[in-house]
């Protein structure tokens, strides 16, 4: 092969992992959650650990669960429990909000598949 051919081959080999990496980064899988309580600054939690986070809202405690790369609200001091009934969330750009308790959970990543979720 000529030197130019070798170069093209090297470039192609370089592009394969790079393209794969970019595809993964654009997959919209969340990397972290951001919990906002009232007017307090948001706090970021990674999702690699399985854990439950208890935060104190206007009405009382809300409990957020992170498991297997997904997040949900499992307990809330509001009556409606709509935030709990909305179930698991896994796409970056999505939110779980308990308005009465003023607790918001935002799913974030470096490269989001969606810039926002409409509902």
């Amino acid at each position: 092969m000529k030197p130019g051919d070798w170069l093209i081959l090297c470039l192609a080999l370089l592009l394969v992992p790079l393209s794969w990496s970019m595809t993964q980064r654009n997959s919209g899988v969340m990397a972290a959650i951001e919990i906002t309580v009232g007017d307090q600054p948001a706090v970021v939690y990674p999702i690699k650990d399985q854990r439950q986070i208890t935060v104190a809202g206007d009405l009382g405690d809300s409990v957020v669960e992170i498991r297997d790369g997904r997040v949900r609200m499992i307990s809330s001091s509001c009556n409606g429990k709509i935030c709990i009934l909305s179930g698991w969330h896994q796409h970056s750009g999505d939110n779980i909000v308990c308005l009465p308790n003023k607790v918001g959970v935002s799913l974030i990543s470096n490269q989001e598949r969606f810039d926002g979720i409409n509902f």
Binding site: G28, D115, G116, I117, N118
Partner: peptide
Amino acid sequence: INAGGDLCGIGNQGERPWRIGIR
């Protein structure tokens, strides 16, 4: 702007338009 799941946008996100998922 995303106001509790309702959104309006201007311009774009950069190399692509603003992309919205519908729950």
